[in-house]
Design a protein around this nucleic acid. Structure first.
Length: 256
DNA sequence: ATGGCTCCTTAAAGGAGA
């Protein structure tokens, strides 16, 4: 079983990219972020024609997450991250697919930091930690996949010193990610590639992809039993080189 | 340090992304 996460940066603007990649990679389950579309503008027919069932939580202009499953429809278990009823942003969706519980998340960017957006990011992280702890305690096979907007270590940034004051790399954020993983999760990509520079994002500026000036910010965290089943993990970085590509590349694991 | 690019939006120029 192959499970992927892909920040599409606009599901309608990037629909040809998404469909081309689905056809090529044939993932069994996919978490999408940054739909940038309200619920009624989700491209249901095109996704179905590609062979995927889907659930989604859209939002006008920004955010928005979805879970796709090949040949079946994800069974929704949660919509929205618990802990703040006033939070209106579409950033968390959870479903069961083929016996695995999949949490799809789009963690806030947090810039500029410090400031209210950074505070929201840290609060969101605390809510995620609380929810993840409960999930882990359930003993179910779980993957928490998405755009975490965090580079966990220096190895995950092309030029760490340039990013130390950025909301994606500040100590508080790296610490929050570390605390989350320490609950008992496995950072799939780093576990399979302990010493390698593996990036999932390259910005649109200054030929970042051509220079390989990348960041690793899209992560799949696995519960202990799923970590034991993992046989492969990777990034489809060639997708970033396609015409009209997202600034993120699809990131995936294979379970045996 | 800044700006570079690309998406979205009552469609002009601004917000947001990272």
């Amino acid at each position: 079983m192959k499970i992927a996460t892909f920040n599409v940066n606009g599901i309608n603007g990037r629909l040809p990219i998404l469909l081309r990649w689905l056809e090529e990679a044939k993932p069994d389950a996919v978490c999408l972020q940054e739909l940038k579309a309200p619920d009624e503008r989700f491209p249901t027919a095109a996704i179905e024609d590609a062979g995927y069932g889907a659930i989604w939580h859209g939002q006008k202009s920004w955010n928005g997450v979805a879970i796709l499953a090949r040949g079946t429809v994800p069974v929704e278990t949660r919509r929205g991250l618990p802990g703040d009823p006033a939070d209106q942003q579409s950033r968390y969706l959870e479903a069961a697919v083929n016996g695995i519980l999949i949490g799809c998340l789009y963690l806030p960017n947090g810039n500029p930091a410090p400031g209210p957006k950074f505070d929201y990011k840290l609060q969101w992280f605390e809510r995620l930690q609380a929810h993840a702890k409960g999930l882990l305690a359930s003993g179910l096979p779980i993957v928490l996949a998405g755009d975490y907007n965090v580079m966990p270590t220096d190895l995950d940034v092309y030029k760490p010193e340039r990013w130390v004051k950025d909301a994606l790399f500040r100590p508080e954020v790296r610490q929050a990610f570390g605390q989350l993983v320490a609950q008992g999760w496995t950072d799939a990509l780093r576990h399979m590639h302990p010493d390698e520079r593996v990036y999932t994002f390259w910005d649109y500026f200054r030929n970042a992809f051509g220079r390989d000036a990348g960041l690793r910010i899209d992560h799949l965290l696995l519960s202990p039993d799923l970590a034991k089943r993992m046989v492969e993990a990777g990034v489809d970085r060639h997708v970033r080189g396609w015409d009209k590509a997202s600034d993120h590349a699809p990131t995936w694991i294979k379970l045996g």
